[in-house]
């Protein structure tokens, strides 16, 4: 009989990634694929979704950005602290093609990194575009270098890499041609731009979306999207075309009560 109960694990290691961003590593054989997410439980506090950002034989990790009270508590976690893990949930990315581009806005790089590693392992030519508002918010720069992953860095203020948006760098690459598929995660306004660019250039793409999620397995209804009404958590990774069919894509999400919250432009 299947059951959904957290597995309690001690934090094995904490990695400082950037300003207000940490990764928590656990020693545990996780049966997950790049793109899937976990619900992470802080006892007596809350349970929140996180993409799997480290995925190795016998260990895995999540990357947490301080955005609210729960993530702030997670960022204070130390080696040995007990956290609960539920999942993995959602559908993984479908890795295909010979030349691919990964587009990450801010900590949207989290679920994309294991995909970049898998692509490299399979000999797929991969470019990882990582963007942030400025240098101090960039994550995984060193990690990518160590892993031998080809990156393009963009910042809004030009403090590191190219001074442009990730989508500008993507557009240049698409114009140059020869790209088989694009994968993206980050702010939804950016995801929509990515999906639209890929549609225009007739290149396949997959985007990893987020909504307020309370259960993670398609029962509570918190993440049901307008107009189709399916719970996003059952997918999370959608093709660009699927995402563009969602009426609220790039428009609004909902809060804990289900009230609409428009995305800031």
């Amino acid at each position: 009989m299947k059951s959904e109960l957290p597995i309690t694990l001690p934090v094995e290691k904490v990695i400082d990634e950037a300003e207000g961003v940490k990764s928590l590593i656990f020693r545990h054989k996780l049966d997950a694929k790049p793109g899937q997410f976990l619900m992470v439980w802080i006892p007596r506090v809350d349970l929140k979704p996180f993409g799997v950002s480290y995925l190795e034989e016998g260990s895995f990790g999540i990357t947490v950005c301080k955005v609210g009270p729960t993530s702030e508590k997670l960022c204070r976690a130390k080696k040995g602290d007990l956290l609960g893990i539920m999942g993995p949930y959602g559908k993984p990315f479908t890795l295909e093609g010979r030349r691919i581009i990964l587009v990450a806005g801010g900590y949207g790089a989290a679920p994309l990194f294991p995909l970049a590693e898998e692509a490299k392992k399979k000999g797929i030519t991969t470019t990882f575009i990582i963007g942030a508002k400025s240098e101090s918010y960039l994550i995984y720069r060193e990690r990518a270098k160590k892993a031998g992953i080809n990156t393009i860095i963009t910042t809004d203020d030009g403090s590191c890499g190219r001074k442009c948006f990730t989508t500008d760098a993507l557009e240049d690459a698409l114009k140059a041609g020869g790209i088989d598929k694009v994968y993206s995660c980050g702010p939804e306004i950016m995801l929509k731009k990515v999906a639209e660019l890929c549609r225009r250039h007739q290149v396949k793409c997959e985007v990893s979306m987020h909504r307020y999620m309370k259960c993670g397995f398609g029962v509570c209804g918190s993440c049901s999207v307008d107009d189709q009404g399916f719970p996003l958590c059952k997918k999370v990774v959608l093709t660009g075309e699927e995402a563009l069919r969602i009426k609220e894509f790039g428009q609004h999400s909902r809060d804990a009560s289900g009230t609409k919250q428009p995305f800031a432009r």
């Binding site: 009989m1 299947k2 059951s3 959904e4 109960l5 957290p6 619900m39 439980w41 506090v45 809350d46 349970l47 929140k48 539920m86 309370k214 259960c215 397995f217 029962v219 509570c220 918190s222 809060d255 804990a256 009560s257 289900g258």
Partner: peptide, 23 residues
């Protein structure tokens, strides 16, 4: 906003929920 999560668990015999009337 309802109760904090976890709001739904399942075990061998069924499900427990403490959604807490989020609406």
């Amino acid at each position: 906003a309802g109760h904090h999560a976890p709001i739904i668990l399942t075990y061998e015999g069924g499900m427990l929920n403490s959604v807490g009337y989020s609406n």
